[in-house]
Design a binder for these strands. Structure first.
Length: 825
DNA sequence: AGCACGCCGACT
DNA sequence: GTCGGCGTGCTC
């Protein structure tokens, strides 16, 4: 038998794979896609690695280490996934380890904890120890094994390694390499009759003896009753039983002690089983019917179809029909949504049709729940009755172990949250989804009311199919949008706080009619900055190059980049004068002004600060839905996933704010955001109103929003993009250099710039100092590379690799951090 | 990423 | 003198 070798992906940001030797006992048992435990690096730390390739070539240049343990009987990652991982690694210039880290749920990556404990007979070496070694021994004498970090705490220093090494040599301690399974199955305790009590005579006898213990008798009776209700399965949920009787576990334990009842544990899923009944899919109206037909026709010749349908045109119902067909064909479906649009509303709607076949996967799920979804998707059997055959998820759901995808839907396709910023791999879920679909030989449907310029362009070029839905469902009218000129209102002193007379009037009317209002302000906090009128200074973050933002509820000035915070002050820190003034405003301030002008209205605020806890977001939406709230103030979050019937007015407080954002996408994004919030207004009975407040009401984008003219926005943007070499005509790759020392950074920037320009000439823009030039004490500089869309990506990638290698080979730049972002958003 | 090795400043 | 800081190189 030949010795096997395995090329492994390690969960680290190191390029390439590592070859390990398969021990004889595992020969023939190992498979690609299984997890193994290996020692890696000088410290022999244990990692969970994944088998990428098996072969029989012993490495020539080094002696391979052995695989220590095989964790899975069957692969947990399939061939299609590995193909996708490869594509992401290459396209986004990431490492295999980066991709593995993004793809595998944390609980599947076992933590190798190095612990130490005292060795038998350590006392002999006791006199031979220095102070620190003695301290370690003393700490260990308590009897528990300690982690390296715990020992560091005991000593109060960082580098404990030398002492550990010395203690090992003196044979005072031993090292334990503990690899812990992180996933813990959830268990439920059931109660059943013991074998002897199943005999009727014995049970009768128990009844007699228990007459003196009425509470126990009551529990036993309840057990028998519940068992009968359960159709005599012989087991009853312990907690339910206790709840029914109002007894404590002590009573039940007595019965167990008397061998009447016994406990048994059973593993259960954490994800609740859908218990409602499924309803049939709804009949589609004419527009939906046509759209469905058009999508299917397009799928015959195109891999991707863009469904451009106005807000509440009934896109979801079209999706449901397509999903139905794919599921009926025994295939899996992936339905991607931006995180914030994944509300109970949409989940319940799909569950109503597809019941238990719906699975959900997003970032608010804990690690154990994620593993359960993963395993369920992995266990998919074509043609079987499968849980999680349809997965509704945020971008990371792309990485689930699908084996037979029949359809991928990317809803709200234009959303920039589909792009992962940090950490690597910096992938775009929409673009990755098209690759995933291709691997599975299936189709992608992109949906949006305001498609991204890229997708619209692809559709126009015939690369994607295009299907439109232009009417709102049920004949609901589009809201009337008007603009308030707040420059003029300010000049004439007609503004009340940040409210224009027009907005105030509309809100008053709506509230009088018991209708609801949504206010959109794309900035959280109370006021962005505190400005000193005397010296012009404003309190800055000590770690980042930004002004601190005032948060009234906490009485603090907070940095939105690193969370550094100081107490609010009434004295200028730089000139000691008391002429401090708050400039600009955020959601919190808006909510407060609301209390002044609409004291009667019930208010709620929805932004990052109010939705940190798991259910906060759902609760706010629920309250608003139930009419418990009259005015909802929020950031971007209010633009998504909300379908309300009573919203009469939507106010956009400061449109210029987003239009002036220094980014080539700011017009596109402003159009999308404004159109999306506007879509929240006016449902069944009445035409809604949208007020856009702006200093420049004649801005072309605002006009486009008012006229519902996507096409005009698209045309002018396409022109700009073509002229100034932006996507979709050019591919962008952003490079960011970071360093704690500004001079070192500048030196690196010069060298890197030279290399980049030597390779790509005038396609390189920069160096450029970002708006926030320092974050968490690191200074930043950017370069932007624009390459022609038709240029060979392989060649570009190769060149970039060479440039980076050359740059990093110069020791001078060792401590400069370089980040590469392909298709930055 | 994380660990070891090696070279320089502040304490006994 | 040494302890402990951090820059540099390597990991199958």
């Amino acid at each position: 038998v030949k010795t096997q070798f395995a090329d492994l992906i390690l969960p680290l940001a190191i390029p390439g794979l590592f070859t390990y030797r398969v021990p004889a006992v595992l020969n023939g048992k190992v498979m690609v896609g299984q997890r193994v435990i290996v020692a890696f690096g000088t410290g022999n730390r244990r990692y969970t690695a994944l088998i990428k390739k098996l072969h029989e070539q012993p490495p020539a240049a080094y002696e391979a280490k052995y695989i220590e343990e095989l964790l899975d009987d069957h692969p947990i990652v399939n061939e299609q996934q590995l193909q996708l991982w490869d594509w992401i690694t290459n396209y986004y210039l990431a490492t295999p380890g980066d991709v593995m880290n993004a793809a595998l749920p944390g609980a599947l990556k076992l933590a190798g904890e190095t612990k130490v404990m005292l060795k038998q007979g350590y006392e002999q070496a006791r006199d031979d120890l220095n102070d620190r070694e003695y301290l370690i021994v003393e700490a260990l004498e308590v009897g528990v094994a300690l982690q390296m970090s715990e020992i560091a705490d005991v000593l109060g220093i960082k580098g404990v390694q030398p002492y550990i090494k010395s203690l090992l040599e003196k044979e005072v301690i031993v090292v334990l390499e503990e690899v812990k399974e992180k996933y813990k199955p959830k268990k439920v305790t059931y109660v059943g009759l013991t074998e002897e009590a199943k005999n009727e005579e014995v049970l009768k006898a128990h009844f007699t003896t228990l007459e003196k213990a009425p509470k126990q008798l009551e529990v036993l009776m309840a057990f028998l009753q519940m068992d009968a209700e359960n159709k005599h399965t012989g087991k009853v949920n312990k907690l339910q039983l206790l709840k029914r009787v109002g007894a404590t576990a002590t009573t039940l334990n007595q019965l167990v002690k008397k061998s009447v009842l016994c406990y048994e544990e059973e593993e259960v899923g954490r994800i609740p089983v859908f218990s409602g009944t499924c309803t049939d899919v709804k009949t589609l109206n004419d527009q939906q019917q046509e759209a469905l037909k058009a999508i299917e026709q397009n799928f015959a010749s195109k891999d991707v179809v863009l469904l451009h349908g106005v807000t509440s045109s009934g896109k979801t119902e079209v999706y449901i029909h397509l999903i139905e067909k794919a599921l009926a064909a025994g295939e899996q479906v992936l339905y991607l949504l931006p995180e914030i649009a994944l509300t109970t509303q949409i989940i319940q709607r799909l569950q109503r049709h597809f019941g238990d076949r719906v699975g959900v996967y997003h970032s608010k799920f804990n690690q154990n729940e994620r593993v359960e979804v993963w395993r369920n998707v992995l266990d998919f059997k074509p043609g079987g009755d499968n849980r999680f055959q349809l997965v509704l998820g945020a971008r990371s759901a792309l990485f689930l172990p699908f084996s037979k995808l029949g359809l991928v839907i990317v809803d709200e396709e234009h959303e920039n949250t589909f792009k992962q910023y940090d950490p690597a791999p910096r992938y775009h879920a929409r673009d990755t989804a098209t690759v995933l679909a291709a691997i599975h030989g299936t189709k992608v449907l992109l949906g949006s009311a305001t498609p991204s310029i890229e997708s619209a362009w692809n559709a126009q070029q015939g690369k994607y199919g295009l299907v439109k839905m232009e009417q709102r469902y049920g004949g609901v009218q589009m809201p009337e949008i008007c603009c308030a000129d707040i420059a003029d209102d300010t000049k004439k002193k007609k503004m009340k706080g940040h409210f224009s007379p027009l907005l105030l009037e509309m809100m008053t009317e709506a509230l009088e009619n018991k209708e609801q209002v949504i206010l959109f302000q794309n900035r959280r906090g109370y006021a962005p900055i505190l400005l000193c009128e005397t010296c012009g200074n404003s309190p800055q973050c000590v770690n980042c190059d930004v002004s601190l933002t005032y948060h009234k509820y906490s009485g603090k000035l907070v940095c939105h980049y690193c969370n550094y915070a100081i107490n609010m002050t009434s004295v200028c820190p730089s000139c000691q004068s008391t002429t401090l003034n708050l400039k600009g405003f955020g959601t919190e301030k808006l909510e407060e002004e609301l209390a002044i002008y609409f004291p009667e209205a019930r208010r709620a605020r929805m932004d990052l600060d109010t939705t940190r806890s798991k259910n906060a977001y759902q609760n706010i939406i629920y309250d608003f839905e139930q009419g418990e709230v009259d005015v909802l103030v929020g950031t971007q979050m209010v633009t998504k996933g909300l379908d309300f019937d009573k919203v009469a007015v939507v106010g956009i407080l400061n449109a210029d704010n987003m239009l002036n954002f220094p980014d080539f996408r700011s017009f596109e994004r402003s159009f999308q955001l404004m159109s999306q919030v506007a879509g929240r207004a006016g449902r069944k009975q009445k035409r809604g109103k949208v007020i856009i407040q702006a200093y420049n009401p004649n801005h072309s984008i605002i006009r486009n929003v008012i006229d519902y003219d996507y096409q005009a926005m698209y045309s002018s943007e396409i022109l700009e993009r073509r002229n100034f070499h932006y996507p979709p005509f050019y591919r962008l790759i952003a490079f960011t250099l970071r360093h704690k020392d500004r001079e070192q950074l500048d030196e690196s920037v010069v060298s890197f710039g030279k290399l980049l320009k030597a390779g790509f000439g005038n396609r390189v823009l920069g160096p450029h100092t970002p708006v926030i030039s320092r974050i968490r004490n690191y200074y930043h500089r950017d370069f932007l590379l624009k390459v022609e869309r038709k240029a060979s990506l392989k060649v570009v990638r190769q060149k970039i690799h060479e440039i980076i290698t050359e740059f990093e080979s110069d020791k001078q730049h060792r401590s400069t951090r370089l980040k590469v972002d392909v298709d930055p958003y």
